[in-house]
Design a protein around this nucleic acid. Sequence first.
DNA 1: ACACGGATCAACCGTGGGGTCGATCCTTGA
DNA 2: TCAAGGATCGACCCCACGGTTGATCCGTGT
Lengths: 226, 226
Amino acid sequence: MSIRVMLVDDQVLLRTGFRMVLAAQPDMEVVAEAGDGVEALEVLRATAVDVVLMDVRMPKLDGVETTRRICSQPDAPKVLILTTFDLDEYAFSGLKAGASGFMLKDVPPAELLGAIRSVHSGDAVVAPSTTRRLLDRFSPMLPSTGTETRAVDSALARLTDREREVMMLVAQGLSNGEIAARLVLSEATVKTHVGRILTKLGLRDRVQVVVLAYESGLVRAGGGAV
Amino acid sequence: MSIRVMLVDDQVLLRTGFRMVLAAQPDMEVVAEAGDGVEALEVLRATAVDVVLMDVRMPKLDGVETTRRICSQPDAPKVLILTTFDLDEYAFSGLKAGASGFMLKDVPPAELLGAIRSVHSGDAVVAPSTTRRLLDRFSPMLPSTGTETRAVDSALARLTDREREVMMLVAQGLSNGEIAARLVLSEATVKTHVGRILTKLGLRDRVQVVVLAYESGLVRAGGGAV
DNA sequence: ACACGGATCAACCGTGGGGTCGATCCTTGA
DNA sequence: TCAAGGATCGACCCCACGGTTGATCCGTGT
């Protein structure tokens, strides 16, 4: 089945150009268009879409906010943000809003098509020049606070939040040192946590932790580790 | 003037493949090769190079450390890191060490060539799937549907039957001794097999083997392990 | 006949991981 | 106010693990 693409941009000419390029692709089709954010949200309620090409600067509702609302919905399409300049803050805020990619409007068609396919298959795409700035900005890492803990196993439930957090990283194949760096802790602390995890779960070593993490559903295959 | 490329990888076959691809390009030439980090640093002292294609897993001096030393020098060439999988920390630590890019070894040649040109012109390039994880790390929770079994499958196919048999047991959390008992072998033999598995798959330790086994579908959750 | 890859084993060694004990700091709640 | 549990860190020890090298045996293919 072909990739259903939606174009959101206030410039009609630009939409036309993109439609031309996409029309030449056997595995893509433009199923919807919109000239601003409000219109985009309306159309999306009535149309099944895989990938949204989203402009940033638009009347009524800008691309970032539109992206946020789209991505907050269940079963949301992937959003690929397009903009003319990359020296603004739109790139980062757009990605934070849930976009899967960010590209300049002047990319070669072939690269844009590749980006659409990457995004559609679940990957993220960022323009090379933007990537560098992203890396520069985020190399000092932040303490992540993703606490979406559901009721799991009785044994797993006995773990503290912190221990479960460490366990997730162990289950991704990280060493104690790497976990310490990621959480901004000393390696000694990580060893303490890992040791407690092993004791509480009755496991021998971190290898078995990984197995249990997958078997218990704490971690699901396809989580992006590979 | 054409881009002077250096290949650093301990697999001669892989170097040959890359050399073939690059030789067909009018704007590129392979001016140097090395099989490990130490050799790479030596050669670099005597040869002018624009872009280095660097493997991560190598004997003597790994790709990350080699990259760090290269990039710490004035007038250093750009380093593009290549690896088989991206499930480990190599990507991040490589970029942190000063690399300008990170790509999987199984990228389409056209994409690799594009990456080399991007890096040479000063841009940063990161494989799409890695970009996603970079983003995930800093903006919690994005829908992830990693479809990236190509590289895994090809590398997995390089394992012998016996190695795959051992890998299955490793993936169930067994120690080398337990595997030896299970297969009626000496522990030394098991260690040999495990070592080869790690080398062939480009992994660091048995923990990552478990992760890969689940992520690649070699093992599926619900198998009654633990 | 020979080369080659796979399977088997051995000895060495450095390191990361796990066990144990102990310590401080903080929040929560009785 | 004090007890309890969680989070953080350090020191120590031991061993499984992984890297390296090198060896033998066997089947396949040239």
